[in-house]
């Protein structure tokens, strides 16, 4: 599962930033969308009970197949949100959703 899905082929000489995905530090490039940041190192964007696994589909904000979570519970559409240094992302439901 640690294999990359996307291949970086152009414009790779960018500043590195770090984001946290499911508690793991992950390096990304400045200007990456969250989708690209994650899928340049992993296979899946979303692996959440009750949801089909997903890695996005349209990359243009139409299919809504790339929503992920931030640790504070906020939802973001990974294909249309840029990764910010220190961003904390989850690929599954927040632990305490509707149970806190």
């Amino acid at each position: 599962m640690s294999e990359a899905r996307l291949q970086r082929v152009k414009d790779q000489d960018r500043r590195l930033i770090e984001i946290i995905v499911d508690g793991w530090a992950m390096s990304a490039m400045e200007g990456d969308t969250v989708l690209v940041a994650i899928l340049a190192q992993r296979q899946l964007l979303r692996d959440a009970p009750g949801e089909p696994v997903g890695a996005g589909f349209c990359l243009m904000g139409a299919c809504q197949d790339c929503w992920v979570w931030q640790e504070d519970g906020r939802r973001i559409r990974a294909c249309s949100t840029y990764a910010e240094p220190g961003m904390r992302i989850r690929t599954t439901w927040p632990d305490h959703l509707l149970a806190s």
């Binding site: 969308t33 690209v36 964007l45 890695a55 243009m60 299919c63």
Partner: peptide
């Protein structure tokens, strides 16, 4: 077609144009 790794043609192009990445090898 819903397997991870299937994208639209538009997505394939946007990945490249917008992010310098391809949807696979």
């Amino acid at each position: 077609w819903t397997l991870p790794g299937v994208y639209t043609v538009g997505a394939a192009q946007i990945a490249l144009k917008h992010q310098g990445a391809t949807i696979g090898k």
